[in-house]
Design a protein around this nucleic acid. Sequence first.
DNA 1: GTCAATTCACATGAAAGAGACCACGGTCTAGTG
DNA 2: CTAGACCGTGGTCTCTTTCATGTGAATTGACGA
Length: 399
Amino acid sequence: MKKGLNDFFENYLGKDPLFLDKKCLQANYTPNNIPHREEQINQLASILAPALRMEKPSNVFCYGKSGSGKSLCSQYVLDQILDVAKKKKLNVNGVYLNCKLKKVSDTEYRLLAALLKTLDVEVPTTGLPTQDVYKMFTEKIDKEEQLLILILDEIDQLVNKIGDEILYNLTRLNSELKKCQIIIVGVSNNLMFTDNLDPRVRSSLSEEEIVFPPYNALQIQDILKERVKVAFKKDSIENGVIEKCAAYAAREHGDARRALELLRVSGELTERDGKTKIKIKYIDDAEEKIEKDRVLDVVRTQPKQSQIALYSIMRTSKNSQVFTGDIFEHYKEVCNKVGLKPLTQRRISDIISELDMLGIIHAKIVSKGRYGRSKEISVDGVKHISTKIDDILKESLGL
DNA sequence: GTCAATTCACATGAAAGAGACCACGGTCTAGTG
DNA sequence: CTAGACCGTGGTCTCTTTCATGTGAATTGACGA
C-alpha cells in the first residue's frame, strides 16, 4: 500500500503537467491585456484624468453583469492613475473596496473601518459609536491636500444591506472637507440599481455612467485564447474546447469569469485523468463539478439550525412536494433528537427562504384556497447529489 | 348558477430582546530595582 | 514603580422571538333566476 502510494506520487511528478501557470485562470488575476474593453477603459480614464491636475473628477457609475470586466477595468485604471500620480509626486490616493466581502459590507461601521484600514488607521472592529468613526475618517483624510478615489465594487450589495444613507453621507462629505476631495466610483452588477436610490444620491453619484455590455461568445473566446497562451502548455487543448467554454459562458449573460473557471476545472479534471489534452467532454464534467462543489460548500458552511432545517426538507420531500408546516413538524423532532432548542416557525420560514435564495431548494408560494397559503418546497435542483448532502448534514449534526 | 364573504395556513414586516463580541480604561498583581 | 493580567462598561452586531398585519383562492352560503 505504502509502496503503491509512493509510486503514485512518483508517477505524478513524472507526468508532464498540463498547466504552465494556473494563476492566470483564477478570478483575481489581472492580465496586462484586457481585450474588448478598450472603450470602457478609455472612458473611465478620461473621466478620472482631471485628478492628475488636482481637479475633482466626476463621480462615476459602472454597470454590467457579473464577469463583464467591471472590477478588472476599474482596478486597472486606478492602478495606472496612481502610478502616474506617484511619478509626478501628486497627492492622489485610491482605495479599492469590494463591498461583497462580509467584513466590509455588513454595516456602515465596517465599511468605514475597512476604509480606514486601507489608509493605515486601525479601528477596533466594534465598540465605537459610528459617529466617532466618521469623525476619524474625515480627520484622517482632511489632514492634507489630496484627492481620494474610492472604488466601491458591488455597491448594490452594500446598499441592500445597509441602505443608501452611507452613500449620501459620503457624497455630502465633500462639502465638509476642506483640503480633501472624494471621488466615488460605484460598480454594480445590477442595472436597475440606481432606480431605487435616494434621488439626491443618484444624481450626485452617477454624474457619469459607464455601461459594460456582456461579452459575446466570440469575445470570450478571445479572452480565453489570450489566457490559455499563458496558462497551458502548447497543444494541450483540443479544437473546439475554447469555443464550447465560451458558448457555455455566453449563455449565462457572457460571464467571462465563469468561462475561465470552466476552463480551469476542465484542465484539472483532465490532469487528474492522466490525459494530456483537454477534450470537449471534460467541459460538461467541469460544469457539473462546479455546480456540485458550490452546493456542497454552501451546505457545509450553513449554521446548525439551517442545516437541521435543510435536513428536514431533504427527509420530508423525498417524493412529493411538501409545505412549510410539514417541515416545521419534522424539524422539531430532529431538534429534539439533536438536542437543540427549536426555533419558531417564523424563523424557519425565513430560513427556508434563505435556502431558496442559495439555490439549494426551490420554494414557491402557493395558495391552496380554503386550506391556506404556504410555500411549496422541492429539492429537484440538487436531487442528483442529495445523498452527498445528506451525508454532510448527518455528519455535521452527529446523527 | 353567481357572487361576495369567509377562512385557512401560512407569508411578510416591524420592533424589541438576548447573547456574544470587543476595545477601552481602571484596578489588581507580580516582578524589578 | 511598572508591565501585564483581569474585570466592568458601553457600545455594536447577529440571530431570534413576539406581535401584527397581509394574502390568494377554495369553500360557503345568501341570493336571484
